[in-house]
């Protein structure tokens, strides 16, 4: 070069910002695609159709009576013998009972004053034990 003091360089001294928008869009699209909203969770039950009433032989019913204290009285069919249990012990009980009688139906009878959570504990135990035939009732005297 003829002029020695010429310091001009071809490299730009600015940060290249032209592709910033593209990067921002890429990030935006990435987060749009990867975002999942939390789904509601719960225990599903199938309610009977109105007027549908099935007659079930007493020997196929396992009565689970939920008391206001959260204690569950377990009564097998016609027998008057009552066994008291905690809700979490029902899972084992159900697996045991259903292997002896595959037609068994769990009749969950909850005391009107008992908290909903105790019924949920029992229902949860039955769901955990893969029980499918569950009847939800309120305890009548």
């Amino acid at each position: 070069m003829a002029v020695l003091n010429n310091k001009k360089s071809k490299v730009s001294d600015e940060v290249p910002t032209s592709s910033m928008a593209d990067i921002a869009f890429l990030l935006l699209i990435f987060f749009l695609v990867t975002t999942t909203f939390p789904k509601d969770k719960g225990l599903g039950v199938v309610l009977p159709e109105p007027g549908e009433e099935a007659q079930v032989s007493q020997k196929n019913i396992l009565h689970l009576i939920v008391q206001p204290t959260g204690i569950v009285d377990v009564k097998r069919g016609e027998s008057t013998q009552i066994q008291q249990m905690r809700p979490r012990e029902i899972e084992g009980l159900w697996r045991q009972e259903v292997s002896a009688n595959p037609n068994l139906i769990a009749a969950v009878k909850t005391h009107p004053d008992a908290s909903y959570k105790f019924m949920m504990d029992v229902l949860d135990a039955l769901h955990t034990a893969n029980a499918e035939r569950i009847s939800l009732q309120v305890l009548e005297n």
Binding site: G42, L43, G44, E49, V66, D113, M119
Partner: peptide, 28 residues
């Protein structure tokens, strides 16, 4: 609510049965 007395839950279930609803989920 976890502390709802069950009598109200039962009433709601009766109402839903009357409405013909079949699929119900107890949110937890």
């Amino acid at each position: 609510d976890r502390d709802v007395p069950y009598r109200f839950m039962d009433q709601v279930q009766q109402e839903l049965v009357a409405a013909g609803v079949v699929r119900v989920v107890f949110a937890a």
